[in-house]
Structures are given as C-alpha cells and as structure tokens.
Design a binder for these strands. Structure first.
Lengths: 338, 338
DNA sequence: GGCTGGCACTCGCCGGTGGGGAGTGCCAGG
DNA sequence: CCTGGCACTCCCCACCGGCGAGTGCCAGCC
C-alpha cells in the first residue's frame, strides 16, 4: 500500500506536470511543494511509484510523468471537483439564456464548454427515446406526399418526407393527425411503438397503406443511428499541446469526425454522475492519449443526453470536471424552461 | 505581356509544386515537362515571372513557388474545371440519396466534399430568406405559451418559443394558424414581412397582444445572424500539410470555428458561378495561406445557399473545382426532390 | 527503519561546424 | 533568342562536444 506521503508526491507530480508539460524531477518537486522531506527521499518515493506503474520516465535520467494509471488514481482518490466561481456561473447562465432554439442551445453550450475548459467540447442532442412527444404534425405536400414533423418536450424537431402508396385526402389526414396526437402526445417516445401498434386497423381499407407507411416512418426515427446527434467545437484548442503533434492531433481530429465513435464514447459513460475515461481506457485507438470527461444532463432528474470534453490526458481534471458539471446543470435548467 | 511559353512554365510550376510541396527548380521542370527548351531558358523565364510577381523564391538559391498572384493567373487563365468521372458521380448520387432529412443532407454533403477533395468542407443551410414557406404551425404548450414552427420548401424547420402577454384560446389559435398559413404558405420568406404587416388589426382586442408577439417572433427568425447556419467537416485534412503547421493550422481552425467569419467568407462570393479566393484575397487574416472555393446551390435555377472547401493555396484547383461543382449540382437535385 | 547529503553516471538538448547538393545569375557563343 | 558552362549562394543534415537536469546508490545519522 502506498503511504500518505507517496500519494502526496503523486499529486504533486500530476499538478506540476499538468502545469508545465514537462517531466518533473525530485528537486523541482521539493522546491515547489512543501513536502517536508529532501529530494533524496522523494527520489525513493518516486522509484516506488514507478515500480507500481503510476509514473514513468520518458528516458533514463529524465523527470517523471504520470501514467494513465497514475491519473486514474489521482482522479479517484486525490482530486476533488473544483466548483466554478460565482461570476463564472453567472456568465454561463447569461450566455445560455440568450439561446433561441435547441440548435442554438446546443451550439452555445459547445462554445461555452470549449471556452471554459480550453479543450474540445462535445454535446449530444437530447435523445428522442428519452424525451416526451409534444406534438406530431402531418402536412400534405402533394396528393401522395406527406411530411411528418415530430416535436419533443426537449425542443427537438425531426422531419421526414413520406411517399404514400395512394393519394390521401385532407379529411383522412386531419383524422390521422388527430388520432396520432391523442395517442402519443405527452407520452414518452420509447413508448410510441406500443401506443400506435394497432392503429392501422381502425382506418378505411383505402387509407391503410398510407397509415402504415406513416407509422413505420415514425418508428424509423427512433432507430439508434439517426436518433442520436451531436455537435463538437473547440478543435482549435488541440493545437495548444505537444510540439510533436502532427502525429498527435491527427488521429484525434479523425476520431472526432466520426460521430459514431463519439456516440459510442459517450454511450459507454455511466448514465448518472460524471465519467472520466483516461488515455487507453478509451476503446478508440486515436484517443489513446486523450481523456474524456462526460456527464449526463436533462431537464428533470433523468438524463436525456450527455455532454463532455476531450482533452489531453495531461489536463486539469478538477477544473475540467467542475466546468463540465456546471454547464450540464445549466443546460438542464434551460431545457426545463423551454 | 507574358509569352505563351512563360505561361506554360507557370502552369508547370504550379502543377509540380502542388504535387510535391517543394520549391521547383529549372532543371527538374525541364525533366518533367516537355517544354522544348533548356533549363537555362527556363531560368530566364522564371526570372521574368518573378519580376512580375507570379512566383517567388523562399530563399536565394532555392526553387520557385507560385505566389497568390501566380495562382490567380493559373486559375483564371490556365486551368479548367476538371469534371468528375462517371463512377464518382454515381457514388455522390448514391450517397446523397440516402439522406433522411435536411440535417442529414447537409451532414452527408460535408462528409462527401471533405472526402472527395481531401480538404475542409463547408456547407451552408438553405437560407430562409431565399426559401419559400411551406407551412407555419402554432402549438399551445401552456395557456400563455406557444411554440412556432416554420417549415420551408428546402426542408428547413425552425422553432421558437413564445411567451404570450395574455392567455390565448384554442379557437383563437386555430384561427391565427389558418390565417397565417393562408397568407404566407407558398410565398417567399423574404416577402413575409409585407404579407403579415396588417394582420394584427383583424383580431379581437384581447388577442392582439399575442398576435403581435407571434408576428414579431416570426419576423425575428429572418434576422441575418440566426438566419444562416452552416456545418463544417474534414478538419482532419488540415494535418496533411506543412511540416511547420502548428503555426499554420491553428489560425485556420480558429477561423473555421467562427461561423460569422465563414458566413462572411461565403457571403463575399458571387451568387452564381464558382468563386475562388486565393490566400490574401481572403479578408480574414487566419486564412491568408488558404484558398476558398465556393459555389451556390439550389433546388431551382436560383441559389438558396453556398457550399465550398477551404484548403491550402497549394491545392489542386481544377480537381477541387470539379468536385465542388458536382456536389453542388447533386445537392440541388436532392433538395428539389424533397 | 527511515531520512539525508554526497557522488558518479546517464542522456537529452543545444549551438557550432563542415561537406554536399540543388539551384541560381550571368556571360559568351551559336 | 536560345544554350552550355561556370562560379556562387545557401539550405540541409549529420556530426560533435559541453552543459545541465535528473537519477540510483551508498554510507552515515537520527
């Protein structure tokens, strides 16, 4: 087991390395932190920490840098979440309050997170399956062509074009629209499949084909792949790191462009509470030298989606976690209001 | 005036430099292109081209690279637009045909353009002001709270929350909805302000406040800033260039994050036909070593928005222009269908 | 037993140096 | 006006050696 002081040494190493981006040596450590022991003692502690795999040396006769395992210990045991200062909290609220619709909320959130953390921000749109149906609209564009519009309580709006197998009259349309809404409005999206299951039967034979098409289109919107959307921002912050980063930045940018990868990444995080994935803990190879801090957000107690940041493993964890948590909280509030 | 051969030399320099990313010398030029003259002659031509500002040397005793002015001449006089090959055109169409809604069309277009050109792609959403109103929907969320949903012929859907000054009954709502639609449906967005100008008056006194609020919200959606949206992608392609690029890539990423900058950039381009802005021709400083190739697209003959790519000035202009034009054409078709 | 100062050693970083090569400008001749 | 020849310029790169930060180990001390 690691002694109290050795943990303190690890904390100091993480702190200094995050600040300077340079391997930290025993002498510098004792100068910057009052550990109450000499460099020689710290050297022994460092040797022990290295033995256990918490820190490593880039080369012999260089200082130490934390390993993924070291950061993990730091995050789990040594670091708290640094709460945001009051003026910053006010700034967040003011900025988000100006949003005009959901796209705007998400866009502003991304900008905000990126700016606060100086890292890459990722914000998922509220999941349809975890939202409630506010309204279903059906519009006739042409005799045999409809547009389906879904509106959720979280402000999301989805639209689909529908080609009907047969012309569909205006009265039938109004009828279908009314019946659909009376069944699903105010209900959870996840429940929609059961709620509309037997709807087709109650229509005239000539309209059944169209009704069935509409219903299947409705259900298709819930398919995983199209259901989840997200927005990212702050990629310029990637350039703040590593002088060597042509090699570093590229796979990260590539991973960020793959929405599928990001969705999986966020999906892996626990549903409630904050999740921190460090370096190789991320399944995706391009992200093996980055950490992902994510948390769910929602209008009520339940999370409707997630947001987070992607940054170098060498990041300010307490500060980042504080910012992510604070932003998630305010976004939740904004959504509840709208 | 530049002789025919000197133009040919410039073309060869651009061609080789784009391919190799290295300054090109007289000897290498004569070896790779059959100019029919000796290196010494080419040297004279190069000196003349340099005198006129079309090419430059990074250092004395190095090869030449084209200047912005050189690329300009190349694009205007020496290069055509390279049409896409048939299989590629089919691939474009197939890929775009799978889109399920406007967001999807735009997202797919961005991916496609980025992949085809191996550069950063920018796609603007169809402008509201240049679209036609398909439908206006008003939903009651609470006694004094409405949701306004606008649907355009280009598939764009905008929503706004409205807090009414007074409760608004269901019959009044249906009335307003019907009257609004009969006035604006099928009309151009740009004309909406006049079309609804005097609508308030025809309502009962108690409802006028709410009607006015609804109308002003409707008009606000047409304000420039929120009216235009865009999506970018392919930023990972930036890493393909310049070994020196921590300095190069950063301002570009920063510029790309500023939607305002990009919108202005696209806005400056001519409305019809393809626009190429080379290096310093771009007003924004961060983009002074990039070129922007953009073109309008639309469902009919008129452009409803623009799309394009951002890449290093040292890019394959004919190929890029071909890809941009082809994609714009197909996107227009897709929009016309929906 | 744990902490400390001392010491020899390692190794990356940095600035200086020198040869090689690609490219140039100029000139005289065809 | 084109061409071959020639002297010159500089960038690139590989090599080298000193410096310094940092380490591991050891003997001594509390």
């Amino acid at each position: 087991m690691l002694s109290e002081r050795r943990l303190e040494v690890l904390r100091a190493i993480v702190h200094d390395y995050v600040g300077t981006e340079e391997p930290v040596g025993s002498k510098a450590l004792t100068e910057r932190h009052s550990l109450g022991v000499s460099p020689a003692t710290v050297r022994n502690d460092m040797a022990a920490l290295e033995e256990e795999g918490f820190i490593a040396q880039p080369h012999t006769s260089a200082g130490r840098i934390p390993t993924d395992k070291g950061y993990r210990l730091f995050v789990d045991k040594l670091a708290g979440v640094k709460p945001m200062a009051a003026p910053e909290r006010r700034a967040i609220q003011n900025f988000l309050d100006g949003a005009v619709d959901l796209d705007d909320v998400v866009a502003r959130t991304v900008r905000l997170l990126a700016q606060l953390t100086r890292q890459v921000a990722v914000v998922q749109y509220p999941s349809l399956t975890r939202s409630t149906v506010r309204h279903v609209e059906l519009l006739s564009l042409a005799p045999a062509r409809l547009m389906l519009v879904l509106i959720t309580d979280t402000g999301r709006v989805e639209q689909r074009m529908i080609d009907c197998p047969a012309p569909f009259g205006e009265t039938s349309l109004a009828d279908l629209r009314a019946r659909l809404n009376s069944r699903v409005a105010g209900r959870r999206f996840a429940d929609v499949p059961q709620l509309v299951q037997d709807m087709t039967e109650s229509f005239d034979a000539e309209d059944r084909g169209t009704v069935a098409t509409v219903l299947s289109t409705l259900l298709e919107t819930l398919v995983e792949e199209t259901e989840e959307r997200l927005m990212i921002g702050g990629t310029a912050n990637l350039t703040r790191f590593g002088h060597d980063f042509p090699l570093t930045i590229r796979p990260v940018l590539e991973a960020l462009e793959e929405q599928v990868v990001l969705l999986k990444l966020l999906g892996e995080a626990t549903d409630s509470g904050m999740t921190v994935r460090i370096g190789h803990e991320n399944a995706h190879e391009g992200l093996s030298s980055t950490s992902v801090v994510s948390v769910g957000y929602g209008s009520g107690s339940e999370a409707v989606a997630k947001l987070g940041v992607v940054g170098p493993t060498r990041m300010d964890y307490p500060g980042t976690m504080g910012a992510v948590r604070a932003v998630a909280r305010y976004v939740g509030q904004i959504l509840a209001e709208s």
